[in-house]
Design a protein around this nucleic acid. Sequence first.
DNA 1: ATGGTCGTTTAACGA
Length: 261
Amino acid sequence: MRIATFNVNGIKARYQTVSDWLREDAPDVAVLQEIKSLDDAFPREMAEDAGYELHTHGQKGFNGVALLSKTPLEDVTRGLPGEEVDDQARYIEGTVIGEGGAVRICGLYLPNGNPAPGPKYDYKLAWMARLEARARELLAAEEPFLMCGDYNVLPEDIDVARPEVMATDALMLPPTRAAWRRLVNLGLTEAFRVRHPGQPGHYSYWDYQAGAWDRNHGLRIDHFLLSPAVADRMTACTIQSELRGREKPSDHVPVWLTLDG
DNA sequence: ATGGTCGTTTAACGA
């Protein structure tokens, strides 16, 4: 089973890019972030014509996540538990049944948090605490799961081209990294780094500005975290960086996870 | 040192 996470930066602007990508690269499950669309405004035929079941959790103008699956998803839920009122659409879960068993897929768009300090950064850290609580629940239930998406977290200095420029950024401030480590230290596996230990220069995002792509001034902020049973099934994790060089790209590229069965 | 680019939606705001 091949699962891809992709921050598309606007599903309407990315119509052709995502349509072509689904047909050419054909993930079994596609986990999308920043659809920037209401549920009713998502171009459903893009998914359905390519052979996907579509589940969205959208809002007007900003944020928004979606799950696309070649096989039916079970128990799709929207929103991250832990806050009574959360008007930001950043989280969706669904269970896919593969040959190797069921996997709970958690798609997330973690808040950027800039400027830090400030209310946006407070919201980011609170959101990370809620995500940790959700991971604890799934671990306690012994449910095989993965959490993937745009984490807006730079786990280590090798995940950014120029760490000194980003030192005070919400994506890598010490409290951000501490919250990330608490999550990983629950016993989760960060798929890409485990498959490519110590290798710098692998990014999943390049700013549209200042020739960031041409200079490879990128960030690795799109991640897969795997529960132990899912980590045991991992056979590959790769970043599809070539998509960033194509016409009318998103500022992010897909990250892929391959599971045995 | 500064500004630079997109997307959504049309005046800024978010990233």
